[in-house]
Design a protein around this nucleic acid. Structure first.
Lengths: 335, 335
DNA sequence: GTGAAAGCGCTAACAT
DNA sequence: ATGTTAGCGCTTTCAC
């Protein structure tokens, strides 16, 4: 069996309460007793049982992050940043995958699993307003997502429309006449996809440019494989396409491969802009022009919101929009 | 307050034990009572308190995976596969980051954090044999790693030497005369790096080929940025380099960018082989020839080992070596 | 400064 | 088929 607090207490000849007080940094303990207990803790290899602490008091020092998928680099980067930030305040992060399916995401949100955390940051994908509304968490939750979400939650979303508008406007400015939107679509509720599609439209409207025919290339998944094949085929069908705004950097990398498959060059024949500014974006050749969602800002705000909510469960929910900016690299032509 | 079992019991007019039995699928409960309780659970929105269950009985249905970094795609892919596999048996995965530093990794391994899991899969980086040996987990742990690890743990490692040998031999076979090892090194204990370096050496010895002078390009980090710059500089210094064996796919992608920066072509001027077979490897241009570590196999075995150990804490530890194979793509020349 | 008592929500073991 | 008892390891409260 693992060493418990009462083992330490017995060895030190004190009560468990004194051990608990020492371990929690409570003030009213003599220096001598404190030191003796600390030594014993080391010697016996005592480690607190977080389940017991949690059962009695809340507070585990753990924050949960629920993401749709572990193997999407965007979430990997988000998790890494969040982890670093939390470490600064002595807490740590556990990441769980919701699998982007409604059932899995709801299961991930089940209080049972969440209770082990002091608070949870939930990246909402695949849930609509009503699904989320059914969730009545008894612990602080911050929502990260694009769709319309119940106002009673603290939430952060990217400025998807503006980002997509910037991306598309940049392409049009650089001489593109026919900007295909890879991974776009108007179906369903407000989502990353529909919002970015809206931005692509808006950029055309802003300049009085006509939307290209069949300009939206739908994708089953926002993955490289899929994007590569669809973009290649689209270019073969229609040589007038001279630019791709890809809904994510992953799609953009797939699109770049597809463009090459079609025997064309980036950016001379076809320009490309992505969205996410993944680490990867700097390292493909040519380096990818993309929209930076300011993850550092998002992460910082998410923790701030969580902390404020942990502090005051009744505070008014906040609704933040992250700034976005265009990062110009080599997949678009110089002015 | 959240609904507890006794709330449900009171509402159903039964004891908490009956509720517990229903929720745990115990057989000796009448169908009528079971249904009544299930309905009430729904109605009251009851969710089990895992901390309480854990405190009493072990079993949370959660498995922990500790990885050095969230933002390395290799671990993202590993976690995703593991998550999928565990879901099949009704369990779920939480991933924690150890940050690749010794302190952080030891902290991640502290029983306090691990106790919330039924078992833990630990990807060991930055710890040597003695550090790991200091760990006396009271719960099942499977080690994933390359260095020499205490035999009392169940463990899995890749066949790094063989993989590196395959990669290097392939380059030599395809006419390479000067294979630089990007990210290699002999320093420190057995590690992914030193083992792959050994394989690179062995392939040369096998063919009676001399090792190139300054053939090992050390890298501070196995990251694209770093690899790109170092490879570019190396090629500029020494035009005789005609191949790069990159210690990881990430390094390989960086190397490919560096080769282009130096004004050379892949694979005509410089061939490249990576290691990991990330999803990314198929989508760079040209597609990356690499070593596949058979992650699916690793994940499957890790869960099997964990389950066997959960079943029998006293069983003899097992020590598995994953098979590796070469995946030939476009960064090496056809035969 | 230290400790005794009570109990968080659950389940194992043993009644009935 | 259902209930009773006890207790997991900790913290809260209150007493000394």
């Amino acid at each position: 069996m693992a060493t418990t607090m009462s083992d330490v207490a017995r060895a030190a000849g004190v009560s468990v309460m004194t051990v608990s007080n020492v371990l929690n940094g409570k003030p009213r303990v003599s220096a001598a007793t404190r030191q003796r207990i600390l030594d014993l803790v080391d010697e016996l290899g005592y480690e607190i049982n977080l389940s017991a602490r949690r059962l009695r008091s809340d507070r585990t020092g753990s924050i949960g992050l629920i993401v749709p998928r572990f193997d999407h680099p965007y979430f990997g980067e988000l998790a890494a940043q969040l982890s670093r930030l939390l470490a600064a305040t002595g807490r740590h992060l556990a990441v769980e995958q919701s699998d982007a399916s409604k059932e899995a995401e709801l299961a991930a949100l089940s209080m049972a699993r969440l209770q082990t955390y002091d608070g949870v940051i939930l990246s909402v994908v695949g849930l609509d307003h009503d699904d989320i509304d059914r969730i009545r968490p008894s612990l602080p939750v911050v929502l990260l997502g694009e769709q319309n979400m119940p106002r009673r939650f603290d939430q952060i979303h990217m400025d998807n429309v503006e980002g997509a508008r910037l991306a598309t406007a940049h392409l049009l400015e650089r001489g593109a006449r026919h900007v295909v939107l890879a991974g776009g679509g108007d179906e369903g509720h407000a989502s990353m996809m529909t919002l970015r599609t809206r931005g692509w439209r808006a950029a055309h409207e802003d300049r009085g440019a006509a939307l290209p025919p069949a300009g939206i290339l739908t994708l089953e998944e926002f993955e490289m494989d899929c994007a590569r094949v669809r973009v290649r085929d689209r270019l073969r069908d229609d040589p007038s396409v001279d630019a791709v705004f890809a809904i994510t950097d992953q799609v953009a990398v797939g699109a770049m491969a597809g463009i090459r498959d079609a025997g064309l060059r980036v950016p001379q024949d076809v320009q490309v802009v992505g969205f996410d500014n993944l680490a990867l974006a700097r390292h493909v050749t040519p380096a990818l022009t993309t929209i930076d969602p300011e993850n550092a800002w998002i992460v910082e705000q998410a923790v701030a919101l969580l902390d404020r909510r942990i502090d005051d469960r009744e505070k008014d929910p906040e609704h933040l929009v992250s700034p976005v900016r265009l990062v110009e690299r080599g997949t678009t032509r110089p002015r």
